[in-house]
Design a binder for these strands. Structure first.
Lengths: 339, 339
DNA sequence: CTGAAAGCGCTTACAG
DNA sequence: CTGAAAGCGCTTACAG
């Protein structure tokens, strides 16, 4: 910048003004400055700017990628968040922090302007840590009591209700839930599964339907094993809500191997997943697909609202999953006894 | 730091020395400084440090996530690279830069110490850009002529040869390759596919085997369509190399629907993928799995060698994929006519 | 519209 | 072993 100023015969302040459009500059000197920048191939140093302005224009999407594989539908959140950030003049990067000290390093050192939190737990220690460090942040997800927080999340409650409604309409009265578990250790209490379980239990009870609940790891092999468990422990079950997209392919395979047909013998409806994941199986799954694009975008908007003092977006919002029919749900083979 | 210095009754230089262990400090004053830091909850500001030391300790894994979905086996490269970086005192973040100006922003502004490049093309403009900006970088992958670059890559040449050898041993003489294409627009010339095609053609010719070549998009639906194409255009083909892990599930499904059995009617061997992706299908695929962990680690080591002046690692290395048997390869149903 | 100057929070020769 | 001081590359009141 010094060099540019010298070459253009202005002060470095003026260079700064023209680079940032932060103060009016006469056309003539602007032209001189721009020519000089051209000639020197000048790029303003982001670190210097960050130190002086206390803004790095970097947002971090916090995802515990070392513990929890980054894959499947969650990837869409990142993509959407990154492109929204880019439109708004920020860079969003995926920050694979996991343990406390890494989060600490991120927040208390001024490297990023704000944080977007993913994989939120019901009782998430990172929320406290972020609050304490006064780092602006927003959640994609929500804790058990998120009333004081800025968040966007899937409306699991209504999504589960819609899922059960769909299956009940088809005539199912005995329905199971297969989820990926609520995690353990530092990642315990994974909120989406906690909420889905609760809503499932409530809604099934309210309708007087027979409910079953299963858990398996998030991979195809576990899904394959789960098929046998399902059939053994709930032989009368005719439909399943799947809250574990990575177990899906194995589950369907396992059912086939046991001589079960999908959807004739068991309807499957995948929750909070995506068409792409649903297309991994045969038949392809009917799915309530996660509003990833919208949540990624809204999360970034909330964060930038905090940063730029805007206040234009709903600070807390829930979005339903959208039903996308596949070929894995149908009426049960034997109609339920009509009273 | 000012505050700490005042409270501990030392200069800020001394605080810096004890924080960084950059100069000897007497135990007594070290204790005073540390007590003061404790009391004030001091964390050294990373931006200030970066400006003074010209080091941010951030590495960027460059992946064009907005164009090319970040998923599947490539995710393992990131995870491995991130944990290696973390062990070595750096933060590695996923930087979804795609167009020139975004890359420019990354490199010419001093925000990151170095860059790890993924999804390398045969003629990759980013290499030139990185070189011109004097940003330290290493490749996970390699260009057409990488002789001057630091890189780690899969040894596609020998991996393809091993794959063909495996199938030839089983008795196959008519073998196809189904890849995901070499990309178009800014992402044209995707090096892994270019290399695989070349090696495939050479090795098949050298062995006097009958070769077929197919391309389809990287998703299950495209794989399903490809099944029909394969059967129509190469009815005599008995084995297939799959260089398109995301088409795999659809491909197998599509074959089944056409009444083809895997591996009895068609053997499939997946290249540069992973057991996890291979487990998505039924039967699970035999796979030459990508050495993701090792390449992610080595890529970061190369980069840190440049940064810290170390020189301890091979600057160019190729790693073979490891064969992991699944259930998708077998001798062809009809033995080939024995001359 | 433009400039001189202070300051962002550190690191690092240089002296002692 | 410790400190005073310059400097990293910018931004931003403050003056003019």
């Amino acid at each position: 910048m010094q060099d540019v100023a010298r070459l253009a015969n202005v002060s470095i302040a003026t260079v700064s003004f023209t680079v940032n459009n932060s103060k009016p500059v006469s056309p003539a000197t602007r032209a001189r400055v721009e020519a000089a920048m051209q000639e020197l191939g000048f790029r303003r140093n982001a670190v210097g700017r960050a130190l002086a302005s206390k803004r790095t224009h970097i947002l971090a999407l916090l995802y515990p990628a070392l513990q929890h594989r980054f894959r499947g539908t969650v990837v869409d959140f990142f993509t959407s968040a990154a492109s929204t950030a880019s439109e708004r003049g920020y860079n969003l990067v995926l920050w694979p922090a996991s343990n406390d000290s890494e989060l600490d390093e991120l927040t208390s050192t001024g490297l990023v302007d704000g944080v977007l939190l993913m994989e939120v737990q019901v009782d998430d220690p990172r929320v406290e840590q972020l609050t304490a460090s006064r780092t602006p942040f927003a959640l994609i997800g929500r804790t058990g009591d998120p009333s004081a927080l800025d968040y966007v999340d899937i409306d699991f409650e209504n999504t589960v209700a819609a899922a059960i409604e769909h299956l009940a309409q088809l005539g199912h009265t005995s329905i199971g839930l297969l989820d990926g578990g609520v995690g353990r250790g530092a990642l315990r209490g994974y909120a989406p599964v906690v909420r889905t379980r609760e809503s499932f239990a409530q809604e099934m009870a309210a309708r007087g339907l027979t409910a079953f609940s299963f858990t398996c790891d998030e991979n195809p092999a576990a899904g394959r094993e789960a098929a046998a468990t399902l059939m053994n422990e709930a032989p009368g079950m005719t439909a399943l809500l799947l809250m574990n997209e990575h177990a899906g392919p194995g589950l369907v395979t396992g059912l086939h191997r046991l001589g079960m047909s999908v959807p004739a013998d068991l309807s499957i409806l995948s929750l909070a997943s995506s068409r792409e994941m649903a297309a991994m199986t045969d038949p392809d799954l009917s799915v309530l697909s996660a509003p990833s694009i919208e949540l990624g975008r809204r999360g970034v908007e909330l964060l930038i609202d905090q940063l730029d003092g805007g206040n234009q977006h709903e600070r807390q919002s829930l979005v339903m999953c959208a039903f996308e029919p596949g070929n894995s749900t149908a009426p049960p083979r034997r109609a339920p006894p009509s009273e």
